[in-house]
């Protein structure tokens, strides 16, 4: 296992929507959403559907995914369904030292036993608001992180520095 990898996935397509009718609207557009608050599911094509709190959703496509594009073109103004534009910075963190890195950045216990599968947390990472989840990806445990894109340069800088310090690599 590599010591630490930091991969910038900010370029992935995203789509956000919130409001009391948002879940219903997504369902009517063929997007399955997590039942519980602060959880995530994978749709077909490994499209990641995250439920942020109770009534907000963030959807992220894989590189060649089209779900977000389609949802964006389908969006009409409906009462109770409000589109949330996104310009997030997003990272994938993996490696044997990933929890060591996270323990400096975040005060929460993000270990396997503390963070349930399909659980999503909105917390503070490196002093700013961020969304975090853990995934199995090609038999590897990885952590995904999203934050406001205007903090992207800062976050990248912090992650890069710690990763290098701990002997990891940055992509």
């Amino acid at each position: 296992m590599p010591i630490l990898r930091v991969i910038d996935l900010s370029a992935h397509e995203r789509y956000g929507v919130k409001g009391p009718q948002a879940a219903k609207w997504l369902a009517s557009h063929g997007v399955a959403t997590p039942k519980n608050a602060n959880a995530w599911v994978l749709n077909k094509g490994k499209t990641l559907v995250m439920r942020l709190g109770t009534s907000e959703f963030l959807i992220e496509d894989q590189t060649d995914g089209k779900t977000c594009e389609k949802l964006a073109s389908d969006t009409k103004r409906v009462v109770g369904v409000y589109k949330v534009p996104h310009a997030d910075a997003s990272y994938l963190l993996a490696g044997s030292e990933v929890l060591n890195m996270l323990s400096e950045l975040c005060s929460l216990d993000l270990g396997e036993s503390a963070l349930a599968e399909n659980e999503l947390v909105m917390t503070q990472l490196a002093g700013i608001s961020a969304t975090i989840l853990r995934q199995r990806m090609d038999k590897e445990t990885v952590y995904r992180v999203w934050c406001d894109g205007t903090y992207g340069v800062y976050m990248q800088h912090v992650l890069r520095n710690i990763a290098v310090e701990l002997g990891g690599s940055v992509a």
């Binding site: 400096e104 490196a126 002093g127 700013i128 894109g149 205007t150 903090y151 340069v153 800062y154």
Partner: peptide, 13 residues
């Protein structure tokens, strides 16, 4: 200790 000094940048930075 080592603290964090977050800053926000616009896309024109």
């Amino acid at each position: 200790g080592r603290g964090f000094h977050p800053h926000r940048l616009t896309s024109l930075h």
